[in-house]
Design a protein around this nucleic acid. Structure first.
Length: 365
DNA sequence: CCTCCCATTGAATGTCATAG
DNA sequence: CTATGACATTCAATGGGAGG
């Protein structure tokens, strides 16, 4: 998409803003505001407020770019609500504490929420409507440039909970066009975003249909065969249903040589991992089905010692702890390596070309 | 060999002392 | 008093390893 250029630009003198149209103003955020407050976090219930009940927002309500009013906790009936902290249409909410990626997240309330109160970890910015459009301000604070400033400013000892002060927001410089132009830009952006969202949704629907079809094709071919005219019989196994009459139904153990769990306890500990050598495969490969990820290695000596746990292309690996029951067929061309204690390995004794079939059956829902 | 429990990590919350 | 930032807590997922 291309935009018509403005007749003239000027240098903003703010590094992250670069050049801006000549008639735009460069001002600190506080010049667009009437007020900034932060809220109150009393001890609340562990569930969201019902209709008609008071709630206190959680910091997560501003994540993801839009305001999520369901992210709140009910105020106990023993506590007196503070109506001054309730949320009005056009309030710009900013989180003041979170991880580096999430701290300073911004969202605008699209309407009044008179029963929802601001929590201690949120700032509520009210814009000066003569000067600034709330949605425009929120977008300005969400640009990659603004995020860079916020993330660089965030401080704190725990890294999982960094803080920003009011000055980090109110002192940030933004480029501000005249109010009418802000509104036009916001309308344009919302319109374009809606179109893109619609396209994404449509593509996602197609992707889901294709995935369904893929499953159906695999399931049909692997458990019923390709010839619809062949006589069928009951397999005797509930989840398989009917199978072609000339097929045999076997337990997985009859077509696999062995089942082997990974090394235990002290046989393989974290301090034996090295930077390169032989791979150690675990759930991180099996769950996504991607054997190229991961960086656990052991030495050649250790590999020789744990040879019995070696895994080769064509093996079937099954996760057995945590996210269990995930299955992957080891692809060809992987780095030599062993499995870790979270996996079971089955080795096929059938000819090589049927291994893929076993993997497909195993991977079916 | 396995089972079970503890440690660690990441994300999100909750609490509180202290400097202005 | 308020705003801030340190730090405790919680919850879930996963990694590590002792001991039957």
């Amino acid at each position: 998409m291309s935009f018509p250029p403005y007749p003239a630009y000027k240098h903003s003198r703010i590094e992250q803003l670069g050049d801006v149209p000549e008639h735009w103003e460069i001002v600190p955020v506080k010049r667009c505001l009437k007020s900034v407050i932060q809220g109150w976090s009393p001890q609340c219930e562990n569930y969201p407020a019902d209709a008609g009940q008071w709630g206190v927002l959680k910091v997560g309500c501003v994540n993801g770019g839009s305001f999520d009013p369901s992210e709140n906790k009910a105020l106990p009936s023993t506590l007196e609500p503070l109506p001054d902290l309730s949320i009005r249409r056009g309030d710009v909410l900013v989180s003041r504490a979170n991880t580096r990626e999430l701290v300073g997240s911004v969202a605008v309330a699209e309407r009044d929420y008179e029963w929802l109160m601001l929590c201690d970890k949120l700032y509520r910015l009210r814009v000066d409507e003569q000067r600034c459009d709330a949605a425009f301000l929120a977008s300005s604070l969400s640009t990659p440039a603004a995020r860079g400033v916020i993330e660089a400013t965030a401080s704190g000892a725990s890294s999982s909970m960094l803080n920003i002060g009011q000055a980090a927001i109110t002192g940030m410089f933004i480029a501000v066009p005249p109010l009418k132009e802000q509104q036009a830009l916001v309308a344009f952006v919302q319109n374009e975003a809606a179109k893109i969202d619609a396209l994404v949704e449509e593509q996602q629907r197609l992707i889901n249909l294709l995935k369904e079809k893929r499953h159906a094709v695999i399931s049909q071919a692997i458990t019923k065969g390709l010839n619809a005219d062949v006589p069928m019989r009951d397999s005797g196994v509930a989840w398989l249903g009917k199978v072609p009459a000339h097929w045999r139904v076997l337990r997985l153990k009859l077509i696999t040589d062995s089942i082997k769990a990974g090394p235990f306890g002290s046989a393989l500990t974290k301090d034996q991992y090295v930077d390169s050598g032989y791979r150690v495969y675990g759930q991180e490969q099996v769950i996504p089905g991607d054997f190229s990820v991961g960086d656990y290695y052991i030495t050649a000596d250790k590999f020789a010692e744990l040879r019995q746990y070696e895994t080769r292309p064509g093996d079937i690996l099954i996760s057995c702890v945590g996210t269990f029951g995930k299955i992957a067929l080891v692809p060809s061309g992987i780095e030599a390596g062993i499995i870790n204690p979270r996996l079971l390995r089955r080795v096929c004794k059938t000819p090589r070309r049927t291994r893929g079939g076993v993997g497909f059956v195993a991977g079916m829902p």
